Simulated assay, not measured.
Amino acid sequence: MYKRVLLKLSGEFLAGAQGFGIVPEATDQLARDLVSALDGTGVELCIVIGGGNFWRGARNGQGMDPATADYIGMLGTVMNAMALQDAMERAGQPTRVMSAIQMAAVAEPYIRRRAMRHMEKGRVVIFGGGNGAPFFTTDTTATLRALEVGAEVVLYAKNKVDGVYDSDPQKNPDAKRYDQLTHMDVIEQRLAVMDATAITLCMDKGLPLVVFDIFQEGNLRRLFAGERVGTLITA
Rank of each mutant, 00 (worst) to 15 (best):
K205T: 11
P134Q: 04
V164G: 06
D70K: 11
A91N: 07
L223D: 06
L144M: 13
I101P: 05
D195Q: 03
A91P: 09
P173G: 09
G226T: 11
E89H: 05
T143I: 15
G61N: 10
R32G: 08
L201M: 15
E108M: 06
D185A: 11
N60R: 03
A69M: 09
F224R: 11
R117P: 00
A225F: 00
I47G: 10
G206D: 04
L155Q: 08
T138E: 01
D28N: 14
V106I: 15
G226C: 06
R4G: 10
L220V: 12
D174A: 14
Y178H: 14
G206A: 07
L181W: 03
Y110I: 11
V161L: 04
Y165E: 01
V124L: 02
E12K: 10
A225K: 13
L9C: 09
D33Y: 00
I214E: 00
V43G: 05
M82S: 03
Q180F: 03
N172K: 02
L45T: 11
K3Y: 08
I111P: 07
E148M: 04
G40Y: 08
R221C: 06
G40T: 13
L207T: 07
G150T: 14
E108I: 08
G52V: 05
I187K: 04
S36G: 15
L191C: 08
